[in-house]
Design a binder for these strands. Sequence first.
DNA 1: AATGCGGGGCA
DNA 2: TGCCCAGCATT
Length: 359
Amino acid sequence: MKYPYTQQFRQNLVEWFHREQRNLPWRHTKDPYKIWVSEVMLQQTRVDTVIPYYQRFIDKYPTLESLAGADEEELLKMWEGLGYYSRARNLQAGVREVVEKYGGTVPNNRHDLQKLKGVGPYTAGAILSIAYNLPEHAVDGNVMRVLSRVLHITEDISLPRTRKIFEKAVDELIHPDYPGDFNQALMDLGAMICTPVSPKCLLCPVREYCLGFMEGDADQLPIKTKKTKSKNEYYDVYIAVNDGKILFERRPSEGLLANMWQFPMMPKKQPSENTWEPFELKYNVTITKVLEENFVEQKHVFSHLTWNMSCHLIEISENGPFPDSVQFVTLKEMEALPLPVPMAKIMNILNRYIFHSPE
DNA sequence: AATGCGGGGCA
DNA sequence: TGCCCAGCATT
């Protein structure tokens, strides 16, 4: 059966949005570049988290060209703490492509946009509808939740193919006069009213057009089956000092936390495994003094794995050349390097209890 | 289709 | 603790 409330739904939704929309920094511009930046930052990331990052990022890289010319390590530093760091590199690659191939003008069609690095179906639709006011779908988890309830769609949203059902639904529902506002209204509704748990149906502006509310099972939707499995990993982390400098290494250019910096880490199969000698061999150093053995056990949870880190403060001497990507840095130099959060946590502990201790 | 990829907020 | 969040690239 065809959804019978298309006209009322889109009109009430957009009117509600015009009254109640959130005041967000990227809503004061129609610059496709800035919309693009905001949408990439918002991938799998909460609005409140993104806001300060977006402000600083646009201050530093106000134009497409300025980002295209940015130093990659500096760029990663701007992204530090935001997560999914390949987004930053892909964004810059995409921006460079726009400068070279499109003369600095962000494409205004889905075909060209989706060929840009880091731009998928959602981000392309968001840019097209918000910056260019084109009637294009922008389906993310938020939209799937809202529309699964409004249209009572019971397909499993953890299956990739299900997204197409929602794209088709948006194609029919989208407000032809206010496509950008319509898409953003779905987001705001999902964030403020149609929340994952305890949706506030009694405050909802489109309650009377919501099939899920009529059925009384809106809060049971969407259907999502896939579970996340996580595994434990164990490491010894060595804060190795020599003459006021600290041994540091850059992670590989691909994979987890690519190109970010860290204290040397030795993986362990078992928490009890001893890695002191393998550490000396791998880094070409000799441990001359153990200052604090296991001064903290630091745990860090990623979405797909957990790091369990035993941290040791030691003094070392250098025997031969370091492996590539390993070097001594001063505390000052370290501040300019992009650190993943687990390393920043350890750094904070060091600053509070070791380096700045009154003794 | 399945998996890898961060980090924080929340019940 | 487990789930969720303005997803995308890779295989």
